[in-house]
Each structure stands twice: as structure tokens, then as C-alpha cells.
């Protein structure tokens, strides 16, 4: 019951965005995909979610993604998109319910309220989605995804959360809240794949890290092994220095000459 990506290539027209990528993700762990803009992170998660035609193979719980029916995929994984729009003025709770309406979890309408509570939006049920702040909208979308894959593990196996920059429009308190929800999901036996921009949150929450550069996997492994000066500097094309949070192995990342850069400005 893993997610295994083998010799994956994705092209937009003649441009190759992902080029022969290999990796594997297991349930029970949070896998963060990091890398500079344009390295193929979002394309990769879209391909995994079945949004894009691809070459090679993406096998998800034993099924090739390209051959799976949307409904079967929806039963085993929920997807939080990077940005989302809403065409009509639905209430927040209706957005969550629509996520359940295709048959997956449709008999659990009360889950919508529980999911809203889980992301800290109790009392927002009857607010218009379009009138919420960007961060609140993001959390409503997360509630929709959580309601869809409510139990991290079912009789049929683990379920997965696919998160494309889940905390990009959130303040630090909500970043921590959302990442904690994702980590709890993984610790309960579910799988989590998250595209991340924030390397420090990645260091804090990820169990595994896939560093991407130019459509390929530059490194994969535990944060402490992968998040090194050399790897990250190479991936992002700038001098980075990885430090360690005192009395732990948690890495945090600063520019190489951070102190010098800061002192110059005084």
C-alpha cells in the first residue's frame, strides 16, 4: 500500500517538466516535496493526483493512476489544491459537503461540521465562502479534504492526503495548526504528501523529504540526512546554511552569511 513513482516524465507540449523521476512514499509518514520554483513540485503532485497525462508509472495502492476511475481514487486520497476558486456563492459548510457528495463518504453529512471544527472554523458554517479571508478559504478547503478521507486507515488500507502548498497563505499559528493536522494524519497510519516552500516547517514536520531540481529528484531521505548545506544550496542555487535546533536533530535553514547580511543593514 505505497505510492511508487517509477521513471515518471511529464511534458507540457515540448517542455519536459519532470524527467525520469523515481521515488516511493509510505503511509504513516509525512513526505515533503521541496525545491525551487519551476522544479516540478506542483506538476508532480498533479500527476500523482491524476490531473495530467504522464509517461512512466505512478502506482497508488496497487493501481496505476492513469487507469483508475476518479471515484476509486477519491476513496483513497483527498487533494488540497494550491489555489481554489468558487463559481457560485456557496456557504462554507456547503463547500465541505460538496466534497462528500460524489458518493465518497456521502452518508456522513455530519462529518462536514466535525471537519470544520478540526480546522478551527467552528461557527463559520453559514458564512459565504467567497467572503472569507484567503487563509480561512484555505482551511475550508482542508476541511473538505479531511471530510473526504476522514479515517486515515480503513479496512481497505491507508488513505492519503495530497497537499499542494497547504500553508502558503496562512499566518504562523495556522501554519503550525495545519501541519499538525497533517502530521497527526500520518501518525494515525495515513499517508501525507505535501509540496512545501517553507524549509523550516519542512524540517519540523516532515518524516521524509524529496528535494527536486529541474524535474529530477536531487535527494530523498530523512530531513536530517537530506537537508544539508550542499544539497539545498545546489537545489535552490544560492548559498544556504543548515543549522540544528539545539538538543534535537531538527534542521533549520538560513542564508549562508545571514549574520553578515543582517549586520550590514544596521
Amino acid at each position: 500500500m505505497t505510492l511508487s513513482v517509477h521513471n515518471l516524465s511529464v511534458r507540457y507540449g515540448r517542455k519536459t517538466v519532470i524527467d525520469g523521476l523515481e521515488f516511493e512514499a509510505r503511509p504513516g509518514a509525512l513526505l515533503a516535496i521541496v525545491g525551487p520554483n519551476g522544479s516540478g513540485k506542483s506538476t508532480l503532485i498533479k500527476a500523482i493526483c491524476g490531473d495530467l497525462p504522464y509517461e512512466g508509472s505512478i502506482v497508488f495502492n496497487g493501481t496505476e493512476v492513469a487507469d483508475a476511475r476518479p471515484r476509486d481514487l477519491a476513496g483513497v486520497r483527498g487533494v488540497l489544491p494550491q489555489a481554489s476558486t468558487l463559481a457560485f456563492p456557496f456557504h462554507a459548510i456547503e463547500v465541505v459537503r460538496i466534497g462528500l457528495s460524489s458518493g465518497v463518504g456521502a452518508d456522513h453529512a455530519d462529518r462536514a461540521h466535525a471537519a470544520m471544527a478540526r480546522v478551527g472554523l467552528t461557527g463559520y458554517a453559514n458564512r459565504y465562502y467567497q467572503e472569507l479571508s484567503g487563509g480561512e478559504q484555505q482551511r475550508v478547503q482542508l476541511a473538505r479534504v479531511l471530510a473526504q478521507v476522514w479515517e486515515p486507515v480503513t479496512a481497505d488500507g491507508p488513505r492519503w492526503l495530497m497537499l499542494d502548498e497547504p500553508v502558503s497563505s496562512l499566518d504562523i499559528a495556522h501554519q503550525l495548526q495545519i501541519m499538525t493536522i497533517a502530521r497527526d494524519f500520518a501518525q494515525a497510519g495515513g499517508g501525507v504528501v505535501a509540496v512545501m516552500h517553507d524549509l523550516n516547517l519542512t524540517g519540523l514536520f516532515a518524516d521524509h523529504v524529496l528535494v527536486m531540481a529541474e524535474g529530477q529528484a536531487l535527494a530523498t531521505g530523512r530531513p536530517v540526512d537530506v537537508m544539508t548545506d550542499v544539497t539545498l544550496s545546489r537545489a535552490y542555487g544560492c548559498d544556504l546554511q543548515v543549522n540544528t535546533v539545539p538538543q534535537s536533530v531538527t534542521p533549520f535553514v538560513l542564508p549562508h552569511n545571514a549574520r553578515a547580511a543582517a549586520s550590514k543593514r544596521v
Binding site: 493526483c49 476518479p70 471515484r71 457560485f88 466534497g99 460524489s102
Partner: peptide, 20 residues
């Protein structure tokens, strides 16, 4: 139901299990 799903965007409609 399908059009409700499409209101969330085509990609999300597919993610929640609709045949877009």
C-alpha cells in the same frame, strides 16, 4: 451533483470522485 462539484473547479471535481 456534478455541477456543484464543478463549481469547485474541474481539478477538484475530479479529486472528489466525479467523472468530469
Amino acid at each position: 451533483r456534478g455541477l456543484n462539484g464543478l463549481a469547485l473547479g474541474e481539478a477538484t471535481a475530479a479529486h472528489i470522485g466525479l467523472n468530469v
